[in-house]
Each structure stands twice: as C-alpha cells, then as structure tokens.
Design a protein around this nucleic acid. Structure first.
Lengths: 213, 213
DNA sequence: TAGATTGTTAATCGATTAACAATC
DNA sequence: TAGATTGTTAATCGATTAACAATC
C-alpha cells in the first residue's frame, strides 16, 4: 500500500542502474559507488544517491554499495522477481520483430501471443502463436494478462487500445504514432522511432547552423 | 545563425503538432486552434501557444491558425523540406525491421544502406543494400551522410559509434541498450524498448498496490 | 459590438544539482 | 586517525501552467 513516490524518469533511471549493475557484476565488481553508476547511465552522483534515498536504499558511507545487495533491491522495486506475460496486437513488421526478439526473456518478460486481424498472418505452429484479433479478449481474460503492446497501424490503434482495456489490460506500450485517449487506471508508454529520428535530424541541422551546442 | 532556443521536448512536441496537422488537413480542416492541437498531442493550449511563440509562429487572435500555413512553418523548422539520407549499422532483427519499414519515406527520410559485420547478412541486390561494416566509412564520406542508426548488439555499439563519428556522422539514433560516450558535436537519441516496457510494468504494479494513480 | 482566442508575462511546480555534515 | 563517500537539505534551474490584456 505504498503510494507512488517516483516519477517516470526516476524509474527509468532505476532500470538503467539495474542494467549497469548487471554488467558490473559480470566484470566482477563487488562494490559500486554513486559516481561509477552515474557515469554508466549518464547522470550525476548526487542524482544516483537521491534516487536511492527515495526508495530507502542505503549504502555504506565510505564503502559505497554492495553490488549484489543493490541489484537485489532494484530488482525488487522493479518487480523483476515475477515473470511478466505480455501480448502483442499486430503481427506486422514491428510486432514480429518484437516477437522474434530474444532479449526480453532474459529480463523476465515473456511475449506469450500475438494477434492480428489479417487471416494471412495467423500462425499457431511456432513458439509464439499468432491468433485472430477476435480472440484477444478471451485470451487476456483466461490467462490474466495485464500488459499489452500495440503494434498496429495508427488508424486501428485507438480501437485496439479499447479492446485491450476492456479485456483487463492495465499497461500498454504503444508503437502507433498516435495519442491514445487514456483512462486513469491504465498506464501507457509510447515508442515513436520516427519522432526520435526527426528529433536527431533537427538538432543536427541546428548544430550545423550555429556551429556550437 | 540562429542559436538553439528549444529543448528536446519542445521539438518533440513540434513534430507531434506537425503530425496532428497532417491528419487534420486530410480531414479538411482549414483553421486549427491551440486547444485542438493540445488535445491531439496530449498537452495544454498554453503550451501549444508557448511553443509557437518560441519560434515566432503567429496565429490570428480569434481565428486560430491557418492549417496550411502552420504546417508549412513547422515543416520548415523541422527541416522537412530537405530529404534526409540515413544509414543503419546492424542488419539484425531491429535493423532489418527498420530497413523494411515504409513509413520513413513519407516523412522525407530515406534509409539508403545498411552495414553488418556478418558476411551472411551482406546483400546488394535489393532496394536497400547491406554492405560489409568495413565499407561504412567510405560510404558515409562519399555520400555525405550525416545521420546514422545503431542497431548492433550492445558490446559493439560504442565501437560502431566511434566509426560513425570518425566518418562524419553528426546524429545517431541508438537502439543498443548502452550509454554511448558522447562528444559535444554529435547528437544522440536513444530508443530502448525493454526499458519502456519495464517502466510500464513498474507502474502497473504500483497502481495495483495503491489502487489509485 | 460582443465574444473568443491569441501572445506573453508572471507564478507555480517539479526535477536536478550543489553543498556539506555525518560517518565508515 | 585521515580521507572518502554517503544521505539529505537547501539552492538552483528549467519547464509547465495560469492568467489576462490585446485584438480580431
């Protein structure tokens, strides 16, 4: 019954610390310091300590943080001890790239099924089946799925979102380049590659015009 | 020789306004108002006007903004009048999904080549060739490419980044889940799907614990 | 004109950073 | 102990929002 105390950005940083720690651990680090972590994620040591203090993570004055212990706490906070099952709506380019991507499994995330409206895309033989979109609702309810990924064209996105929400999905990662009309009790994060690329292009042009950052 | 006056976020919003305007225009809108635009991108009308005033975009008191004119100005600011050529390092899942994605062309972005270290991935027949990574530098120089996408595994990312920078690349969109050691005159944006998904999962869990947002 | 909407200034809010006492 | 690093408070910084005069 803990209140939500952290911003989206601070949680993103916790994930980054966790990822950095995993690398450090492989390199044999036993202790880590706030400035090392800061360096790894591109922040300041003060921010690292601030983030930790927000979650009651204590280090050792002079001795930094024990890597194992810290990683354990971060995994705890981020819910990495429970495997998450995720479904995908849309078995196009993006959807199938995600389906085939192996990296999620190592992070405790299992993509368990994809759904598509196009009968030609339906495929139930492989590791991860592609079902008709019609079956999404029943599947989500039966398997108690809470997280969905939207990888359908923008015109279909809002409708698919509503199907997901009415099925009981509580969190959505949206790849469609459109603002979903959100409801208060569903979490939505957006990934928009084209926007990010356009942003890079803008700043490259701006840099060229001015010659300085 | 205009100084850089805008933050990353305000430029991202300009892109969103631009995208929303494109949709509005297709629907036959001639005038748009700040509150309509705010609604479309999930902001406030004050912010829309603030963003515009930052770039000297003037509307019409009482009459809002002329859609054509506004779109023209946004395209100008965002450099959409010049086609951008982009290369990709890494012809794996992500890299090839991007290569095959048709959406960029409509946005004035052309992916002109991909590069990979694995000889099995080299393919020069198709629309978009995949060359050996060795040839990246020469290609970038010959064709005066300024934007690159990094879609290689994290261990290779920093090295590929350095190759890009030494070739003359000025802006990078990085999909590798690692912090690149940046230099002042190169722009880097990161896309990390796993991080975003982890973030959704955290807040869904947090929501469940508290029962409120 | 009356009413609606812009453009801008000032106020607020939140996030980041600096600084330093506490202490291992 | 001396020196280094944490944990926290206060200061700063920047971004968002409120408010309202200007005016179409």
């Amino acid at each position: 019954m803990r209140a939500i105390i952290a911003s989206r950005n601070s949680i993103l940083r916790l994930s980054k610390y966790k990822n950095a720690l995993n690398r450090f651990q492989k390199l044999g680090y036993v202790r880590v310091f706030s400035d090392i972590l800061a360096d790894a994620v591109g922040g300041t040591s003060a921010q690292v300590r601030k983030d930790f203090s927000l979650f009651g993570i204590k280090g050792n004055k002079r001795g930094g943080y024990n890597a194992d212990e810290l990683l354990g706490k971060l995994n705890d906070i981020l819910g990495k001890n429970t495997r998450q099952s995720v479904i995908i709506a849309g078995a196009g380019k993006i959807g199938m790239a995600l389906v085939k991507y192996k990296g999620f499994e190592n992070e405790g995330i299992s993509i368990v099924a994809a759904f598509d409206i196009d009968p030609a895309k339906i495929r139930q033989g492989g590791d991860i089946p592609v079902f008709p979109l019609d079956e999404l609702k029943a599947f989500v309810k039966t398997n108690d799925i809470r997280i969905g990924i939207i990888a359908v064209p923008d015109i279909a996105a809002q409708q698919v979102f509503e199907i997901m929400v009415s099925s009981g999905i509580k969190g959505v990662l949206n790849f469609a380049p459109i603002r979903l009309k959100e409801t208060a009790d569903v979490v939505v994060n957006n990934v928009n590659v084209e926007l990010e690329l356009e942003n890079v292009i803008y700043f490259v042009n701006a840099l060229e015009r001015t010659g300085s950052k």
